[in-house]
């Protein structure tokens, strides 16, 4: 099954992080991505720019500046992983959460 690992982070921390902290964070994500590759689970993923750069569109075309929900934690990126079942997906999710953010594990709908 395919799962999305959605990373929710306190944006303030990331916005205020210095260069060394960012370097360490990217290194940790590099190790996580390597783990996924080792297990044949890597199906892609992206880091998203801070939510302040988002534009939200509602039906009818109304545009608002900013993300859909103004919360302290914002979606900051995601990985797509292939896992045998939820237990394996949660194992990946736990490893990702170790890096310090909140991780939501969502199954991806499969069309046969």
């Amino acid at each position: 099954m395919k799962y999305a690992l959605l990373i929710y982070q306190t944006e303030k921390n990331w916005a205020e992080a210095d260069e060394e902290q960012r370097r360490q964070a990217y290194e940790a994500h590099g190790r996580f991505a390597a783990l996924l590759k080792d297990r044949g689970a890597d199906r892609g993923g992206e880091e998203l720019a801070l939510s302040g750069t988002a534009t939200t569109i509602r039906s009818g075309g109304l545009l608002t500046d900013g993300p859909y929900a103004e919360t302290a934690e914002q979606l900051g990126g995601f990985y797509l992983v292939e896992a045998r079942d939820l237990d394996e997906a949660l194992e990946f999710g736990r490893a990702l959460a170790e890096l310090g953010d909140i991780v939501e594990v969502r199954p991806v709908v499969a069309y046969e």
Binding site: M1, Y3, A83, R84, D85, L86, D87, A89, P107, V109
Partner: peptide
């Protein structure tokens, strides 16, 4: 069903 919770006894670790 949708989240893929498996039927089965967990691994010794879990």
């Amino acid at each position: 069903r949708a989240a893929g919770i498996p039927l089965g006894v967990p691994s010794p670790h879990d």
